[in-house]
Design a protein around this nucleic acid. Structure first.
Lengths: 126, 126
DNA sequence: CGTTCATTTTAGTATGCGCTAATATAAGAC
DNA sequence: GTCTTATATTAGCGCATACTAAAATGAACG
């Protein structure tokens, strides 16, 4: 999916004497799997239902039963289950089974992310 | 979209003497607009192209010209422009016009978020 | 003016997502 | 065992998203 048909960009050598734009290569130093993990995590949280679910779990003192999360989300029971399931595979929550109930708690990574969101929220000028 | 057909949940009073599950209400204390902003931000970053674009911008010492971001992303030029545009409306990048070129830089919020991702990455056991 | 270059915008399309509804599993209660 | 209760899983559908290709904008330069 990356096939430049012709090479219309200036070469490195040309860039040096060019206008000032395109004067360096730009990359970052993250492994592919780290990127994939991050993107999956962010995509997971980039949805109202899942975001709210995680907020509820993270706000609680101890771990939270699914049946307590459900009424707050305003979607069907199946949708809640799917949401929690995806939060789990993204590494944002831990879960524990007890009898008929399933209890969820947030991971350190989730806590860190939510904290970062909270701490930087004011930085954006409205 | 939230219409319980019948009230099958125990009442608060019942919960107290019930099995131990469903023993409290769970909410969090964020404004609707804060949630909307966060979710939009997270959804924006939950995409390979936009995530990589932001990483490149954030990794650079000074601000970065669009033409330098393009070759690293492996999508069409129009797609890059759309990606940067959405990063901008999500409050993750700032932009500056100079002649024919447009330069992008990351906002404090973006830096904070990326830092949180980096700092918590090891917390997830693989 | 017209041409070229950098970027944005638009139109169209194909894929993926998030939901509901229904069904399945699994564990207590009886 | 049957009957609930709690949660998970599946099928299916409508809508959003992310891209490509093409056209439009806008600035520099002849």
């Amino acid at each position: 999916m990356n096939e430049p048909t012709t090479d219309e960009r200036p070469t490195d050598a040309q860039r040096e004497q060019e206008t000032g734009c395109c004067s360096g290569r730009h990359e970052h130093a993250l492994s592919e799997s780290a990127v994939a993990t991050d993107v999956e995590l962010l995509a997971t949280l980039g949805n109202d239902t899942r975001y709210e679910a995680l907020r509820i779990i993270a706000a609680a003192d101890d771990d939270v039963c699914v049946c307590e999360i459900e009424p707050a989300l305003g979607v069907s029971q199946g949708a809640v289950s799917q949401a929690l399931s995806r939060l789990f595979s993204a590494g944002l929550v831990e879960r524990r089974k007890e009898g008929r109930w399933r209890y969820y708690s947030s991971t350190p990574r989730a806590e860190g992310l939510l904290a970062a969101l909270d701490e930087t929220r004011g930085d954006v000028r409205d």
